[in-house]
């Protein structure tokens, strides 16, 4: 099955209109396979993708852009218990996950 998602690029366009990811520390909740992550990870200073599906996280890691790999991490966790200290991120994104 060949499914295309958002060929018009609206999601990326609106995401960047709503937040400037340059040099920001970003937490993405519900990152899945990292489709949304790939829209901004090149620009951020740190990207942490969170999801409860370890298989999806493996894909997110593999498909992470080369230039963003050294500053990206993908973690198996739940939004109800974030394994981070206070004031760790500049931006949080709920990616199709609320």
């Amino acid at each position: 099955m060949t499914v295309q998602k958002d060929a018009q690029g609206n999601e990326k366009k609106f995401l960047h209109e709503f937040a400037d990811f340059r040099n920001q520390r970003v937490l993405e909740i519900g990152c899945g396979e990292g489709r949304l992550t790939r829209h901004y990870a090149h620009a951020s200073s740190l990207t942490v993708g969170l999801d409860s599906d370890p298989d999806a996280l493996r894909v997110a890691l593999i498909e992470s852009p080369h230039e963003a790999k050294h500053k990206s991490a993908f973690i198996n966790a739940q939004a109800e218990h974030l394994p981070f200290s206070k004031n760790k991120f500049d931006i949080a994104a709920l990616a199709w996950s609320l």
């Binding site: 937490l27 974030l82 206070k86 760790k88 931006i91 949080a92 990616a95």
Partner: peptide, 17 residues
């Protein structure tokens, strides 16, 4: 929890269908 890990004046983007 999200609020706790964000800096003061941080941003939350809620994107969903």
């Amino acid at each position: 929890e999200i609020r706790r890990v964000l800096i003061p004046n941080g941003i939350l983007i809620d994107l969903r269908p």
